[in-house]
Design a protein around this nucleic acid. Structure first.
Lengths: 164, 164
DNA sequence: GATCAATCGTTCGGTAACTGAACCGTTCGG
DNA sequence: CCGAACGGTTCAGTTACCGAACGATTGATC
């Protein structure tokens, strides 16, 4: 039984039409597209997040930033290395503590960040495009309640907190 | 400037409160939790998906299944290897074509699948818990429209189609 | 002022979850 | 019967990280 099923039968695993599945799948797709959106600027999503974080509090120490972004110090080193190599930000020695490096955006970094933010906004509008303003607001509200139900406090991307 | 910001100032990168970000983050968290839900059964989400797929069309060839699930043949081998090792499914030789392996669930595989599906359902209810029935339906509808807007046809998880 | 624990940033080896190219045995079309 | 194509497998490589160990430096304590 079930031997000749190839040409017409349309045997498709009945997909989970569950909220969880939908959210997971859609979230994945969106992350992927977002990544793709940033590619022309040669920025990884994580690098974008870092530029934003540095921009938000210029001159912060590397370690403090790593903690705020919930990424490991060693990974932080790697990202900062790369961004510094491309002269988007720089490590400056702390005046009194020779162990710490303070991070500052360069002019180029600020420029690139602006471009990236513009693209991110466009992307966001594109995602919300199938819905009108009311629906969009409703969606956000519903999502926030689901988020709260999972004890995810809003803030950084879950990928950066949820190392469970 | 911006040197003393550590103790009170609550310097937090203004988070994207965009739909895209919300969906991406929430989707990630949900995937993670789902993964976590399956851990007691010692099943990866991909393995679960495979068991479901095999169950839906028993005796299908490995290659056909790989295509339907949008995973590479070599990765399919790895998953099947593992599941066969644990005697959850078996490869049987095709009657007329000695290249082909047909996949069948074992009794143990069917049992485990049932348990996993039960857990998945529980999980789904948990995710939707903050919303009432009407809201849940509304959420699903909105999500489906966003999904359609991104040209994602519903079906397998986006992780398995979106190798862009 | 000498010692010692802690801290900052870095290096390095490792891991999870895959992919792609190359391969073998088999089958099929001409 | 021969060559192309196919199913399944192997293997080396990639991506995106983490954790342990380390050196330099600091601050706390005697």
């Amino acid at each position: 039984m079930a031997e000749r099923n190839s040409e017409t039968a349309e045997v498709v695993t009945p997909p989970f039409r569950s909220v969880a599945f939908l959210l997971s799948s859609l979230g994945y797709a969106i992350s992927r597209r977002f990544h793709h959106m940033l590619e022309p600027l040669d920025l990884e999503p994580g690098e974008f997040a870092l530029l934003r974080a540095v921009s938000a509090s210029d001159g912060e120490a590397q370690s403090a930033l790593a903690e705020r972004m919930h990424i490991s110090p060693s990974w932080m080193v790697a990202i900062v290395d790369e961004l510094e190599r491309r002269e988007l930000l720089e490590r400056r020695p702390h005046a009194r503590d020779r162990r710490v490096r303070n991070l500052h955006l360069t002019v180029g970094g600020k420029k690139l960040l602006k471009q990236a933010e513009k693209r991110a906004q466009q992307f966001d509008r594109q995602v919300g495009d199938p819905l009108n303003a009311t629906e969009l607001q409703q969606l956000v509200e519903l999502l926030q309640r689901v988020e709260a139900g999972l004890d995810l406090q809003p803030g950084a991307h879950a990928a950066m907190r949820e190392r469970l």
